[in-house]
Each structure stands twice: as structure tokens, then as C-alpha cells.
Design a binder for these strands. Structure first.
Lengths: 226, 226
DNA sequence: CTTGTCGAATTGTTCAACGATCCTTACGTT
DNA sequence: AACGTAAGGATCGTTGAACAATTCGACAAG
């Protein structure tokens, strides 16, 4: 656990702006998202507060923030753990996606949002050509974030951001990212085509099938050990 | 003997559910929801920590929780204030409602959920008969919470809970609650009828009109002073 | 093998302190 | 009189230490 403190101290310079607790939360969020802290792992108050050079109280405020984002699991008197979503969680995440993305494809897209979708598709294709499946995953996430932004609602955007961060936790427990991400590069392009063509009902139907497929694939490849 | 363990594990969440900070958050949430703390009002750390008999640090953890729920507004070095939603916020809240409730009415309702809807409608009608417009508002909120629960997703339920709590802030700034709540008692019954009749498209259309009407009425009656 | 007990380790909460920041008020300059 | 500004007080932001409460593993007893 000592090299953890050493590694974290690299992030200390980032402590120059806004509230310390929020900056700590940003750092931890990035670390979790990048897989540096793995799902199920316990985050020691002492080790991390020492590593980042902040007090325990400040760190605890940051923990509360991330707990509310469902990235951390706060167990009373036992500490905080990087969340390890259950299969039931995955199913619920996909229920939410069906609602948010389904509503999105039925709306008339504006140019700005379409541009974001196109770029995400291109990025995914580029990354796939280089066998960079981590990159494909990231571009894929950007695609769906852009998709949901068609709803034109800051609150929905924020919900989707959280949802995708949570989903990233699931990806980190998967052993074979390629098998999961690869099929969706083409699907994204097809879905984009239907949206551009102004065929909302077709797009919605395609999306439903898309999400069913993704969920099945994901739950199948996902065996968390509680 | 193994199914005993499986059965008990359902009660696991109930174990980790009491920390002073969370209990403080519960209290403050209730107070805000009841209008005891009014939108725009500043909550002094010293006064409240003293009043509740908890330390400033613990209170601050509670503040963070409520801030994330958008009930409190945390301004750096200036303190926390009960959130006072802007007109733009109201518009966004209704955008989210259209998505969540729209998806709900298109789903096949199960008996359990229908029961909740019926009870909420009855409660609203009872309260209206007694000129209890506060009660009508509460029942109305229950109706829409039950409506959204048709989506059968814990995360969506939670989002809706937060959304309605935020909307309650708006109601507290309104001068004439009756004018706002009265028209929707009948509307709720009509909407329930369409759902029971198995007419999702009609119900969706009626709901859209419903929400348009409510939003217009609300924004019109709402002039927050920032 | 199960149960009871002890102790180390960690979290939950409080308290006091000090620097940083914001708001108000009063003051002096133009 | 209008304006910028400097001083003061109030409050927040953060820290460090302290102690109680709880968990967990180890070990002994039955």
C-alpha cells in the first residue's frame, strides 16, 4: 500500500483550484475510471489522505460525493469500497439506457449533436483499426453520451454521465474487452445512419435490439464474485 | 439451511443504514421539503450544528449529500443555501419528466403499480374535497412517483424522487398553490383511465399535453428573485 | 468444529485552532 | 456626491489530534 501513496502524490499538484474536497473527488473519480482502483477494492482513509496530503475530514467529504455517484460503496464502520455492480445493477443500468436513449432517438436531431455523434463513430472506427479496444470502449461511451444529449437536458446529460461511469466499473471486471466492444462499432454507424435519415421509429427499434444484445453479452461475460 | 442465508441477505441493506451524517441529512431534507427552510435561505454551519448537537464536520458531510441532490446550493466560502430553482431549471425538470413519465405510460402496467396509482388519485380527490391543497399537492406527487415506477427501475425511481423534491422547492415559492394543483386532480384520473384501458399511445399524448400545461402554468406563476 | 473472548486496526465523531475569503462599514480622495 | 479602498468582523475551509465505537482475525475453551 506504500507505493499507492507514492503514486498518488503525483496528483498533488492538481490541488490548486476550487474546493479541496471536490478536487480530491475529481482525482479519485479519474483513478477509478482508469481502473487504478479496482472494483471491490477498499480505499483506506489513512493511506489515501496521507498520499494526497489532505486531512481525513476533507477526504471523507470527497468520499461522500463519490458515494452519491455510485462509484463508491460506503459501508458503515467498514470503510469505502470501489463499487462492484451486481448483475441486477447491470440490468437496471440497461433499463435506464433504454428509456434515455430511446427518448433521444425519437427527437429531431440538431446539427451540433449530430456532429458529436459522427466524431464518436469515426474515433471508434479508427481505434478498432489499431486494435485499441480500450479506445473503442471510450469512443463508444462518447457516442452514447452524445446520443443522450439529443434530449437537450442538462439533468439527463448528468444522469447519463454517472450511468456510464458506473458501467465503466463493469467493464473493468470483464476479462475480454474486445469481444464486447467490437460488434458495436458497426452498430453505432448504422444507428447514426437511421437517425440522420430521419427515421426515428426504425432507429428506436434498432436501438432496442442493440441494447438487448449488449445487455445479454455483458451479463453473460460478467461474473462478479461478491 | 442455505436458503435461510439467501433469504436473510435481502435484509442486508438495512444493516448499514445509520450514520449521524445521514440522519442529519434526513432531518434537513424533511425540513426543506416541508418548507421550514425556505428556498434562498442560508443555512449557517454554526447555528445548525449547534441546534442539532452535531459537530461542524458531520454537518458538512450532510450538506454534501443534499448538495448532490440539488436541494442545497453550495457556494464556496459563502455557505450553503436552500436551492432556489431558476425558470430554466423548471423547464429542464419538465424535460426530464416527459422522458421518464412518457416511457412509463408506454409500458404494460402490472397490478401492484396500478394499485399505487389508484390510491394516489383517491387521496388527491379526498384532499381536494376538503380544500386541503397542500394534501392535494402531496398526493399528486405520489401519483407521478407511482407512474414512473412503472418503468420498474430502482435508479429511475430514485431520480424521480430527487426530481420531485426539487420541484417541491418551486412549489414553496408559489403564492397560490390551489390554482396550480386543482386542475390536475381530474387529469390524473383521466390519465389513469387511459392506462387501465390499455391505450398507451393515447395516454402518452394526453400526458404530453398534461405536462405542457403544467409547465406553462408553473413558469407563469413563478418569478424567483435571483 | 463451534463458540466465546481478547486485542489490534480502522472508522465515526468531536473539538479547537488558524488561515482564507467574503461582506459591510467607514474613510478619504476626486 | 460619487467612487475606490482599507479595516474589521463573520463565516467558511481545512487541518490535526483525540477518543469512542465497531469490525475482524486470532486464539483459547468447550
Amino acid at each position: 500500500m506504500d507505493n499507492v501513496a507514492a503514486d498518488l502524490s503525483q496528483d498533488r499538484p492538481r490541488l490548486g483550484r476550487s474546493s479541496t474536497a471536490e478536487r480530491v473527488a475529481d482525482i479519485l473519480r479519474d483513478r477509478i475510471s482508469a481502473g487504478f482502483f479496482q472494483p471491490g477494492q477498499r480505499l483506506s482513509e489513512e493511506t489515501i489522505s496521507e498520499g494526497l496530503g489532505v486531512s481525513r475530514n476533507t477526504l471523507r467529504e470527497a468520499f461522500r460525493l463519490l458515494g452519491h455517484e455510485r462509484l463508491l460503496d460506503h459501508k458503515l464502520n467498514r470503510g469505502v469500497f470501489v463499487r462492484l455492480p451486481s448483475a441486477e445493477d447491470v440490468a437496471d443500468l440497461y433499463r435506464v439506457r433504454r428509456v434515455l436513449e430511446g427518448a433521444a432517438v425519437r427527437r429531431k436531431p440538431d446539427k451540433q449533436a449530430l456532429k458529436g455523434l459522427k466524431e464518436a463513430v469515426l474515433d471508434a472506427e479508427r481505434a478498432a483499426a489499431q486494435d485499441d479496444w480500450q479506445g473503442v470502449g471510450t469512443a463508444n461511451i462518447r457516442f452514447h453520451q452524445a446520443l443522450v444529449s439529443l434530449n437537450d437536458s442538462p439533468r439527463i446529460d448528468e444522469s447519463m454521465r454517472q450511468l456510464l461511469a458506473e458501467l465503466r466499473l463493469v467493464f473493468h471486471v470483464m476479462e475480454n474487452p474486445r469481444a464486447f466492444h467490437e460488434p458495436f462499432v458497426d452498430r453505432n454507424r448504422t444507428l447514426l445512419g437511421l437517425i440522420e435519415a430521419g427515421e426515428p421509429e426504425q432507429a428506436a427499434a434498432y436501438l432496442d435490439d442493440y441494447l438487448d444484445h449488449a445487455e445479454r453479452l455483458l451479463i453473460h461475460a460478467y461474473e462478479p464474485n461478491r
